Simulated scan of single mutants.
Amino acid sequence: MNGSNLRRGTFTILLALCATPWVGTAQALVMGIAVGLLQANPWPRQTARYSKMLLQASVVGLGFGLSLGEVIQTGKDSIWYSVIGISCTLLLGYGLGKLFKTGTNTSALISFGTAICGGSAIAAMAPVLKAKSDETAVALATVFTLNSAALLLFPLVGHWLQLDQNTFGVWSGLAIHDTSSVVGATSAYGATALAIGTTVKLTRAIWIAPVVMAASLIKGGEQQARIPLFIIGFLGAAAIRTLLPSYEHIWGELAGVAKQCLVVTLFLVGAGLSREVVKQVGIRPLVQAVSLWVLVSALTLVALKLPWSA
């Protein structure tokens, strides 16, 4: 068996294992990263495309595990954290970009991705800023690298600080970049953390549309942004569960399948972290992104632990 066939065979076996209940989210991520860094992903373009599609389908499926009332209440409870957090993150990102002399567009994309929803937010904002392909790629690679770190670090910090599942879910939803990483970190922490973290993150992702439109008006452009369809699907699934409670066992099964699909998704996400991506990030964008992320994570956790949040 030549090297190419060996890589494909190993990748296929590990992917199949991730579809079984014996592999959890953290294990899938580590396996994916090992494949990406040690032997190289044999199908990088395909896995990038399918991981995005599978994530969106999984998020919709998770909606069957929640009632519409739970979704609305969680979103309402976290809205002020979202508004204040987005504003402060964008301001901090601007300041850090100036401090570390990161390119203007790269700095703005990193800040926007950190403030709202990682790669989705960066992709939506790039046309407004007329960012070059390499600027967008660096911002995406930087945020993607930190997403992988968040999946492993957040549960460790949460257990070390003895955070309850409610606090951990809200913190993850506000401080982790992408939906996939929020889901991965919270699912490893507990079912309640997963439900809360996913809802908070999706509520935050809705802000992509108004912020992109505001930036477009400031820049004098015509770029429009719409609420991602998978968020609408998530809300629709929760509404179906609420309106048809007699089929709760079916909704529970669908939510369970969605959770296992997320394990597969995280393997694919991890496999996308190649040596080339790590090299592409560069030192200045990485220092800015890490500094911004650490500040946002720490300040968000402090805010959640203050008396007014109780």
Rank of each mutant, 00 (worst) to 15 (best):
L91R: 02
S216D: 10
M125W: 09
L90A: 09
S180E: 07
A214T: 11
P42H: 05
L96V: 08
A141H: 02
K132D: 14
T145F: 11
S111A: 15
L304P: 13
A26L: 13
T192E: 10
T114H: 04
S67C: 05
F154L: 12
Q165T: 07
T179G: 04
S216G: 15
R45G: 12
H159N: 06
F154P: 13
V281F: 01
P127N: 01
A57S: 12
P228M: 04
T203G: 15
L304D: 06
N2E: 09
A255H: 13
V182I: 12
L306I: 05
A16H: 07
A131P: 14
C117A: 11
T136H: 00
V294N: 07
N5Q: 13
I72G: 01
A175H: 07
L17G: 06
A126T: 11
C261F: 10
F267S: 10
C18E: 06
G252S: 06
G95M: 08
A298C: 11
L37S: 12
T198A: 02
V263T: 15
Y189C: 08
A188K: 03
V257F: 12
L66F: 03
G93W: 00
S274E: 04
N166H: 13
G103A: 14
T265L: 02
G158E: 00
A115F: 02
I250K: 01
K76Q: 13
Q280P: 00
I110S: 07
A191Y: 02
L268K: 09
H249C: 02
K98V: 06
S111W: 03
K259E: 13
